[in-house]
């Protein structure tokens, strides 16, 4: 589709996505969560896959989305490993103290 302006491409997409088995990016948006979780019935998955084949915007969006989910996950893990929160001794002692009280009251 070289030589065509983005506006024209979008207009063609606008028409194309109204054909049977096609959806617009706006409708695609409603299925992204299920798509990412891989929880769609085959027919719906096929419709979304077809849309992705044709639509670089949704493809890029989804790819960036996947990377950002992965970043959130991995950053939290890395932070826990490399910058662990030091457990204050007073917290340990408070927990043990409370446990002693609880154990005693259970016995009575």
């Amino acid at each position: 589709m070289m030589g065509l302006s983005k506006r024209t491409i979008n207009r063609i997409h606008g028409i194309l996505f109204k054909l049977p088995m096609m959806i617009t990016c706006r409708s695609f948006e409603d299925f992204i969560l299920a798509y990412l979780d891989d929880k769609l019935p085959p027919r719906q998955k096929f419709v979304l896959d077809t849309h992705l084949e044709l639509c670089p915007e949704c493809r890029d969006y989804l790819r960036a989305c996947r990377i950002s989910i992965e970043l959130a996950k991995t950053s939290a893990r890395e932070a826990e490993v490399y910058f662990p929160i030091e457990v204050p001794e007073k917290l340990i002692q408070a927990v043990l103290e409370a446990q002693k009280v609880q154990a005693t009251s259970n016995r009575n």
């Binding site: 979008n10 996505f17 990016c25 948006e29 949704c58 969006y61």
Partner: peptide, 16 residues
């Protein structure tokens, strides 16, 4: 999205 329901996404040249 634009008036055709097409996603408006800034161009991506690199994904790290």
């Amino acid at each position: 999205f634009d008036e055709n329901g097409c996603r408006i996404e800034e161009d991506w040249t690199t994904f790290r």
